[in-house]
Computed example of a mutant assay.
Amino acid sequence: MGKTKFENKVIWITGASSGIGKALAIALSHYNCKLILSSRRAAELQLVKQQCLHPENVKVLTLDLAHYSEMESVVDRALTFFNRIDILVNNGGISQRSPIIETSIEVDKKLMEIDYLGTVALSKALLPHFIKNKSGYYVVVSSLMGKFSSHYRSSYCGAKHALHGFFDALRLEHSKDHIKVTMICPGFVNTNIARNALTGDGSEQGYQDDMTENGLDVNTFVKKMIKAMRKEKFEAYIGQFEKFGVYVKRLSPRLIHKLVMRSKVK
């Protein structure tokens, strides 16, 4: 499948103001599709829009995933732009870096509200539209941490694991409606995710770690992500050596435990 996979489609991307979402929006703008870009930051979204190939085919819609009770009205607004939505890329979210013993339950709650409940609420609000059209495609940016866990990411791992449980069920229930789901599982990608990650008291970490700094270039990642979307894969593991952790976990949960324990992940 080539560019025709996305031609004339309406694609809605959350978390589109930076990182993976920004790079994905710019890449997809070359595919003769229409885009809706969302995040909390309107000014940054406008800058991304201007970097797209055909900005006249791009609409900006601010949303805060933490306000998950508002998602039905957000979907209503989104549908006014092009009268339909074909693909929802659930990319918005935050990460966390802190030992469990030092992590406030409020941080766990915030990660679940944004990374899980916000994503689920938005997807559920759009679901009747997909059912009505007998067509729809959810692309969910999870993480390799949704398949196995690592140090100092307990809240993040919990939220990402939860996403897999929900969207596997959605895929099962709505295959009859021709609704598809792809779970994108990044490893280390060189974005600001570590800088913006919450620490145990809820403040931002504010600095990059070596593993993230040396991760995949974001544009390289997006090319692989688009390839997975073309193929409508159930799951795609995109990273460097760390992606093999998924297969090791299947083979031996004890072995992946030992390997992660020996790693220098911070």
Rank of each mutant, 00 (worst) to 15 (best):
D86H: 01
V48I: 12
K243C: 01
I114P: 06
M112Q: 13
F188P: 06
D64E: 14
A27P: 00
Y207V: 13
F148N: 05
E232P: 07
I85V: 13
I226W: 03
Y156M: 08
L88N: 03
F244C: 04
L163P: 12
E7C: 02
G239W: 07
E204C: 08
Y68V: 03
H161D: 04
V260R: 10
Q46E: 15
Q240W: 02
I11C: 00
T182I: 01
C33F: 01
G19A: 13
Y207G: 00
T80V: 11
P128K: 12
D76I: 06
K160L: 01
K132A: 14
K227H: 12
F130W: 02
G215P: 10
Q50E: 14
I101D: 08
K249N: 15
I131L: 09
D210S: 14
V140Q: 05
D108Y: 15
I238D: 07
V140A: 02
N83A: 13
R230D: 00
S98F: 02
S98K: 06
H161P: 06
T119N: 04
G158H: 07
N83E: 15
L127T: 10
A25D: 07
V260L: 09
S155P: 09
Y116G: 02
F6P: 01
M1G: 05
K231H: 09
E70G: 00
G165N: 12
T62D: 00
H30T: 11
V107T: 08
R40I: 13
C52T: 10
I193W: 07
K59Y: 04
C157Q: 08
L24P: 04
M71R: 04
G146A: 03
K160Y: 07
V181W: 09
I94A: 04
E102T: 11
K266Y: 08
I94R: 07
S39H: 11
K243H: 07
N133A: 15
K264R: 14
G215T: 12
T199R: 14
I100S: 12
I238S: 08
S203M: 09
A197G: 04
G21L: 12
L198Q: 11
